[in-house]
Design a binder for these strands. Structure first.
Ligand SMILES: [Zn+2]
Ligand SMILES: [Zn+2]
Ligand SMILES: [Zn+2]
Ligand SMILES: [Zn+2]
Lengths: 137, 137
DNA sequence: GTAATTGCTCTAGTCACTAGAGGTTCAAGT
DNA sequence: ACTTGAACCTCTAGTGACTAGAGCAATTAC
């Protein structure tokens, strides 16, 4: 039996976040003490650890909800879990590509100014002008 | 003189976004028609184009606010604009590094399952377990 | 003149939390 | 047993940068 604070430090998830996860139905409401405080069983810790790691990997709460439902049915095919993970990986890689393009443009933009004053600043000029960019964004 | 819709299509910024920018003080409130509709001068277009491009490059509204203030004072030193742009570039590169690490982990995770059922799914296992990860996140 | 489009304000919703107010319960020390 | 202080409770509101929708008014085209 954990208090919410003990669960929090074990799972490395902040106390208000745990209550938030309960509110949105990501974890089950635990039993309460006589004084109405939350008391968790050990399985709440493994559930929360799963959520924590999936969040750290960047999965959305909705995706994690789906994964939790799957996790609860060990006899179901796991293909859907693979689809969720692969989709997230694809999203991630698209995002990386996009940020790399921005990084290229910004590198160019920040190396362009020989002036000292705003009036002739090439950085400010380039920040406002897409025509010298090499990529879309 | 543009209507908000004309400004919107010229600057490629949606109408509600333009009104939002006005609310938060990023653009000046324009004159109004007799019937209380917004009527913009050409300089509103260049301001909005600047904002659009800076946003596309990933700068925050706050950073853009600072840049706009600078832009209005052509005799000031432009060093501060360089600082803002460089800071953003650094943030961007840190973010890219972090996402690349996630991508590496997720690639490993998604290629690990030989099972067909949730009960033995390595993907689900690895999503919940940080101990097999090579990096922090 | 009338109908379609565009405009107006205001409120609330998005995502995943985080902060704070104002109060209650618990655990430890005396 | 009593007191203190930490941890807990609920509820509301705020974050960033918009987006959606309701309910109405103005403009434009035919
Ligand atoms: Zn400069
Ligand atoms: Zn550009
Ligand atoms: Zn599997
Ligand atoms: Zn990990």
């Amino acid at each position: 039996m954990f208090s919410i604070g003990q669960l929090s430090s074990q799972a490395q998830v902040k106390v208000p976040t745990i209550r938030y996860y309960e509110d949105i139905g990501l974890i089950d409401p635990p039993h309460r003490s006589e004084g109405n405080q939350r008391r968790y069983e050990p399985d709440a810790l493994s559930r929360l650890t799963f959520i924590r790691h999936a969040r750290d990997l960047g999965l959305s709460i909705d995706a994690i909800k789906d994964l939790i439902v799957l996790n609860a049915n060990p006899d179901m095919p796991c293909k859907e879990a693979h689809v969720i993970a692969n989709q997230h990986l694809k999203d991630l890689q698209r995002k990386i590509t996009q940020l790399q393009q921005l990084s290229v443009e910004l590198t160019r933009i920040t190396q362009n100014c020989n002036s000292d004053t705003v009036g002739h600043c090439k950085v400010l000029e380039a920040l406002g002008d897409h025509s010298s960019c090499k990529t879309d964004h």
